[in-house]
Amino acid sequence: MKARYLIPLAIFIGLLVLLGVGLKLNPREVPSPFIGKPAPAFTLPELHRPEVSFSQKEMLGKVWMLNVWASWCEACREEHETLVAFSKTGVVPLLGLNYKDERKDGLGWLNQFGNPYQRSLFDHEGLVGIDYGVYGVPETFIIDKQGVIRYKQIGIITPELLRDKIVPLLRELEASA
């Protein structure tokens, strides 16, 4: 009979656990529908050389990272140092997508804080951003040799994330055919 009094307590603890888990989830992390799908096709001018255009097809056969950033994005400033350090390791090519920015602002930013990108693409209208489902810069995509998106990071890349998740994944993708 005593167990009866434990029922409300059990329900309460159950609720507590449910709410606790709910608090830990990040509502900004929307599951991306892009994982395992081919990277959307695009052609964009380069940031440094407006007359040179780039298409994602040029990267076929390589594992590469596409980092979406903007000079107005404060969080991008935060992850920038990590990206500069990462680019020096030369694990895979890192390309930048300057998103909804002004050309002079984007260039100024790279001059001031260093340029980690092998190539920088200029998406002034943010249309390529829409095709890639970008909704909160910075975002980073990992694309494999077949041109398939394998990973998407929403928000900043930290050294820990690089070490624990991204670099192992890149090596695994590099090793596969």
Partner: peptide
């Protein structure tokens, strides 16, 4: 929209 941002 769903293709880009998911059911969310």
């Amino acid at each position: 929209m769903v293709k880009r941002y998911g059911d969310f």
